[in-house]
């Protein structure tokens, strides 16, 4: 028992140590109401949602954000949203071929005269990149670089199941209501946007710089734009991405109503899949392994009891 207690103490200390990275100025991103379907040891991605999420990615996000670690074939591989057991080789999956062919990419292989041509993508190609390089991406986005979304759900949160997806979900629908963003004439004579805060402790006005958008879930520090008590600065930061989702922004192929919440939920779940496409294999292998180890430990325990039964120790 003493051993157990000590181990427990050790683990709690470990847990504190790992969660302690959390000192940041952004609002904590909770999972959606009802939690994520993929969370927990037996959780599974909701594939309809991942499919819709891919549509949101294609039609909204892909204009600025690349996913260079993914290929079209991944969509049709086992554990992917468009996996079809009739096409074990995802390259033959007609849906995957169709998605690929809808994008024009620059052929990485030069043509016979040595030039690089655009051609429709094939399933084995990586996702189309919206910009040829980082400089072009920055030039097109007011100096900001839209991050690659391949592993974004693993790159946010603290590694627990779904924290990265919750971040995406909350951030994308977490912009303040446009009606709360007010406009006035700034000191330089130009119009400036600001947001009034009147919470428990946070009273004041936050000026939103031109081309920047306030979001409480974005890590950052807004002290410089804050007119109010510097001890109670609002959560969050500014980002260069304007709010993207409005009701009906995409028309879902499966007829689901495209509310902002639905789209945020779907894109977060798509990115959750994309960040770790083998997660369903991982969890489904986990269960038999755990059962095997527990059974083996029981067998060893009885063996141990047998062997030691005549020795005082």
């Amino acid at each position: 028992m003493k051993l157990l207690r000590t181990l427990f103490a050790g683990f709690s200390a470990l847990a504190i140590a790992t969660t302690a990275h959390a000192a940041g100025g952004s609002k904590h991103a909770d999972a959606p109401e009802g939690g994520w379907p993929f969370a927990g040891p037996v959780g599974k991605l909701e594939m309809d949602s991942v499919q819709r999420g891919y549509q949101v990615y294609r039609e909204v996000c892909a204009a600025c954000h690349g996913m260079k670690l993914l290929s079209y074939r991944n969509l049709g591989e086992k554990g992917g949203p468009f996996y079809d057991y009739e096409y074990p080789n995802a390259n033959d999956n007609p849906l995957v071929k169709e998605f690929a062919a809808m994008d024009e990419i620059l052929d990485p292989v030069p043509n016979d005269s040595g030039d690089y041509d655009y051609r429709p993508a094939r399933p084995s190609d990586p996702f189309r990149s919206p910009y040829p390089n980082e400089q072009a991406a920055r030039a097109a986005n007011g100096g900001a670089y839209p991050p690659d979304l391949s592993v974004i759900t693993k790159a946010r949160g603290h590694g627990a199941d779904g924290e990265g997806a919750s971040y995406v979900y909350r951030l994308i629908k977490g912009y303040p209501d446009p009606e709360t963003i007010l406009t006035r004439e700034g000191e330089d004579g130009l119009n400036e946007n600001y947001i009034k805060f009147d919470d428990d402790k946070t009273h004041g006005e936050l000026v939103q710089p031109l081309g920047q958008y306030y979001n409480p879930y974005m890590p950052g520090d807004v002290t410089a734009q804050w007119d109010g008590d510097p001890r109670h600065v609002p959560y969050g930061g500014f980002l260069a991405m304007a709010p993207q989702l409005t009701d009906g922004r995409v028309e879902y192929m499966d007829g689901t109503e495209a509310t902002v919440d639905q789209m945020a939920y779907d894109i977060a779940q798509f990115l959750q899949w994309a960040g770790d496409p083998k997660q369903s294999q991982r969890k489904s292998l986990g269960l038999p392994v755990m059962i095997y180890l527990v059974l083996l430990s029981l067998l060893l325990w009885f063996s141990y009891q047998r062997i030691w039964r005549k020795v005082g120790h």
Binding site: P41, A160, R282, M290, L293, V294, S297, L300, S303, W308
Partner: peptide, 30 residues
């Protein structure tokens, strides 16, 4: 051998729980 073996397998249960269910929690998202 049997006592160590038992302890090793119990340790592997904890190990496997991290590998299969929380593989990234001990690392850093950045």
């Amino acid at each position: 051998t049997v006592k160590d073996g038992f302890a090793i397998v119990v340790f592997l249960i904890i190990f496997a729980a991290f590998v299969f269910y929380l593989p990234n929690v001990l690392g850093h998202a950045d």
